[in-house]
Design a protein around this nucleic acid. Structure first.
Lengths: 197, 197
DNA sequence: TGTACATCAGTGAACGCGCGTTCACTGATGTAC
DNA sequence: TGTACATCAGTGAACGCGCGTTCACTGATGTAC
C-alpha cells in the first residue's frame, strides 16, 4: 500500500462525507462506527486514528454536510437571474426531490431536533452553520424586489419539509410542500413599505 | 398485591404516558425499555404483557402524547375570547416555556423527523395526529377575523420551534421564536379578499 | 366458614447482539548509512 | 546499490455494556366446592 502525502487527510474527508450523508438518511444514532468505516472500505479499528469519539465525528459531519449543502444551494442560485433567486430557493428547498433525498439535503430538517439534545460542542458547530444558512437567505434577498426576515423564511421552509417527510400520505405530503411555498412567499414583503428589522 | 378490575389498563396507560414524555425529552432511540419500566415502578419483564414490541409502544406513545397535547391546546384556546384565539395559539406554541419543556410539547417538533424513518404503522398513527392538529388550527381559525392555510401555519410553527431548540445561542433562539410568530402572522389573510383553499 | 385451585400482573435472570472503544499488531513506505 | 530501521495508516480481535426480547417462576387474587 502506498500513501501519498495527504492520504490520511483524504481518508478522513471520505469518512466525514459518508457520515454526513448517512446521518441525514438514517439518523445519527442509527448509524454505527463500524458500519460507517466499512462504508468507506476500512475496518472499525482505524476510526480512532481520525476522531476522538463518535460524538466528535457527529459534530464535524453535521457541520461539514450542512456547509456543503449551503454551498450547493449558493452555487445553484448564482446560476439563476437576479430577481428570481428567492423563488428558486423556495422551489428547490420544497421540491419533491429534496423531500425524497434527505442524504444530501438540509441538515436542520434531517437532524435539527436530534442535535438539540447533543453536547454543547456539537450544538455550537451546528449553530454556526445555521447562521451561515441564514446568511445565504439574506444574500439571496439582497437582489430581490422583496425583503424578509431570514429566520422566518428558514422556519417555514424547515417546518414544511419536516412535515412533508413525516406523514405517511403522499397527497398530504405534497400539500405540505405547496402550503409551505405559499407560507414562505407570505413572509416576503415589498421593500418600500417593508418592515426592516 | 390487589388488582382492581382495570388495574392492568391503568398500568399500560402509565407506561404510555411516561414513554410519550421521555421520547419527546430524550428522543425515541435514547430511551430503553428497561429504563421506561423502572420509571413507572415496574421491572422490564412485564413490558411484553402490555406491548408486542418497543416499536408498538413508540407508535402508541407518540400518537397518545400528540393527542394529549392537541387536547391541552384546545382546552386552553377555549378559555380565550373568540377573535383572539389564533394569537393565543401562536404565542403559546412559540413561547419560551414550550421551547424549554419539550416533554409535554409538540410531538412534531420533538420527533417528527425521526418518526419519518420509522415503520409504516408508526407513521400512519402519527399522520392521523398531524391531521387532528391541522383540524385544531382550522377550528381555531373559524372564529377569527382572518383565514389561513392550516398546513402553512403548522409548518411555520414547527420550523421555528425546531430551530429555536437546535441552536446553542439564547439570543438567536429567542429571535427564532419572535421571527416565527411574525412568519405565522404573515400567513393570516383578511377574509374578504382571502384566498381560500 | 374453610380449603384447593385457576388466574394473571409482574419478577428477574438470561439470551444473543451490536454498540463505542481499546490495543497489540501488520506491512508498505521513505530514510539512514 | 543494498541492507536496517523508524514511521504510521490501517487491521482485527477483544473489552464491557446496554439493548430488545424471552421465559420459567412468584404470589396475591377471586372462585369452586
Amino acid at each position: 500500500m502506498r500513501y501519498s502525502k495527504d492520504h490520511k487527510t483524504e481518508t478522513r474527508r471520505r469518512i466525514v462525507q459518508n457520515a454526513s450523508r448517512r446521518f441525514r438518511d438514517e439518523g445519527v444514532e442509527a448509524v454505527g462506527v463500524a458500519s460507517l468505516m466499512s462504508g468507506v472500505g476500512l475496518t472499525v479499528g482505524g476510526f480512532y486514528a481520525h476522531f476522538e469519539s463518535k460524538e466528535a465525528l457527529i459534530a464535524e459531519a453535521c457541520s461539514a454536510g450542512f456547509a456543503e449543502t449551503t454551498a450547493r444551494f449558493r452555487a445553484y442560485l448564482d446560476t439563476r437571474p437576479k430577481g428570481k433567486r428567492m423563488a428558486a430557493l423556495i422551489d428547490a428547498y420544497l421540491s419533491p426531490s429534496h423531500r425524497d433525498n434527505a442524504a444530501e439535503g438540509c441538515m436542520i430538517a434531517a437532524n435539527g431536533a436530534e442535535l438539540g439534545r447533543h453536547p454543547q460542542a456539537t450544538r455550537a458547530a451546528f449553530t454556526a452553520q445555521v447562521n451561515a444558512w441564514l446568511g445565504l437567505i439574506d444574500e439571496t434577498l439582497r437582489f430581490e424586489e422583496v425583503t424578509a426576515d431570514a429566520r422566518g423564511v428558514a422556519s417555514a421552509l424547515v417546518g414544511a419539509l419536516v412535515l412533508a417527510r413525516s406523514v405517511d400520505d403522499h397527497v398530504l405530503s405534497d400539500a405540505f410542500l405547496d402550503s409551505g411555498k405559499r407560507a414562505v412567499r407570505a413572509c416576503l414583503t415589498p421593500p418600500a413599505k417593508g418592515e426592516k428589522k
